[in-house]
Simulated scan of single mutants.
Amino acid sequence: MTENAAKRLKTDSGVVAIGTHNGHFHADEALAVYMLRKHIPTYANAKLVRTRDPKLLDECDIVVDVGGEYEPARHRYDHHQRSFSTTFPERATKLSSAGLVYMHFGKQIIARRLSQPEESEQVGLVWNKIYQSFVEALDAHDNGISAYDAAGLAAAGLEKKFSDGGFTLGAMVGRLNPNWNDPIPEDPVAAQAAEDQRFELASQRIGEEFDRGLDYFTSAWLPAREVVAEAFAVRNEFDAGGRIMVLKKQSAPWKDHLYTLEEQNPEAGKVLYVLYPEKPTPDAKWRIQCVPETKDSFQSRKPLPEAWRGFRDEELDGISGVPGSVFVHAAGFIGGNKTFDGALAMVQKALL
């Protein structure tokens, strides 16, 4: 296997090379390699060398997830050494090779996408957001860190109600490794080539998901920040206590930005309901969404009245006393009305 890598290095002398380990692969180095090759111009046409031979790794321009060194000045990004304890700024999860590469190269990736300096506020916002929403899960998975404290769950007597299939980002990559009983070519060079081909597929797969997140957070999530900030600033127009926020033109990703604005303005109180049109046209119906207690919670801060839940149209008009009602979900977290005035009247009643 190392013979194959050695031949490639010798044959491709002068070509930039990225080194990582061979054998069973994981999501962290698959993403690390993808980010470098896809988004960092220096490594755009880099050869991939999968080996554990220190001599061959020494010849690589950058090494991730192998080698026992974390030395950014030399572009060595391993996290397996006993002394390693580095985390992303203001996060507690120990980094894997994905987090290391993202921490050092992520701002460059985002700055290129936004055409802004790496030091800009917008780049910093997206850099932190992508780490927390995507990369951190890979760091935790590779370092064996659970999203929940096992002792706390046991003490509370909490158990999973059903299997979620174990389909995490890490599992998505892991299932692309060969099965234990898959045939392996007898020729070591052919065997390594087959393994490398699987790794390339895994790297592309996790990279596509990363790119979807990058596209979303730069082109949709970040522009929504200004929309939500404007609505947050004028929410007292609709309720003296600032409990109703209206996105006047169309819906935008609001949850993250709302929670951030509330943290930055603790004296302003909590928003309970968000109103927005279903589409950006004058005749659009309006939706009412209850603000969850937390971003990932199914529990609303103040659900719509229980008496309204599960009813629709004229029947709901009679129960709510507001004409134009469309529906209220059986769980009470969302509802709708044919007009803005109707939706506003519904949440004003719900606040009583």
Rank of each mutant, 00 (worst) to 15 (best):
E121S: 11
E293V: 15
T87R: 11
F340C: 03
T2C: 08
G14V: 12
N128F: 12
L352Y: 00
V126Y: 14
Y259F: 15
D283Y: 08
F217I: 01
A98P: 05
A30W: 00
N22D: 15
Q264F: 06
D196H: 06
A30P: 11
G19K: 11
L201F: 05
F238P: 01
G166V: 02
G318P: 05
K55F: 03
R50Q: 00
E59V: 08
F105L: 12
Q348P: 08
P292G: 00
P183T: 12
Y148I: 15
P280M: 01
T20P: 11
N265V: 09
M103N: 08
F232E: 04
G321L: 12
V63S: 09
T87F: 03
G318T: 12
G324Y: 08
S97M: 06
Y148M: 13
K55N: 10
G318H: 11
G336N: 09
A92K: 15
L222T: 09
R82N: 08
D58S: 10
T51N: 00
A220E: 15
Y216T: 05
R76T: 12
D211P: 02
R175A: 09
D142Y: 00
G99F: 06
G165W: 01
F134Q: 06
S85Q: 02
K349L: 05
T281C: 05
C290I: 06
E186M: 11
R198P: 10
P185V: 01
S83F: 09
N128I: 05
D196V: 01
E90H: 03
R287L: 12
D211A: 14
D317V: 11
L201K: 13
V33I: 15
V15P: 01
G157P: 13
T260K: 08
Y131G: 02
S320E: 10
Q289C: 07
K270P: 04
Y77R: 05
K10M: 09
L169Y: 15
H80N: 07
G207L: 11
R309E: 07
P282A: 15
R312P: 01
I244E: 10
H75Q: 03
E3T: 14
E29T: 12
T87P: 07
H80Q: 05
V322F: 00
R52V: 13
N128A: 04
V326A: 13
K129Y: 05
E237F: 07
N4C: 02
E262S: 05
H24P: 03
D256F: 08
G242V: 00
A284F: 14
I18L: 15
D283M: 02
H257W: 15
L114G: 15
P72K: 07
F105P: 02
D187T: 09
V347D: 04
G124F: 04
Y43S: 13
H39G: 15
L169S: 11
V16T: 14
W308P: 13
L169I: 04
L258A: 12
W286L: 04
S300F: 03
N181G: 03
V227L: 08
K295W: 12
L222C: 04
D142Q: 07
E278M: 11
L36E: 06
L31W: 08
H141P: 00
A330K: 02
Q250A: 10
M346Q: 10
V15Q: 14
R112I: 00
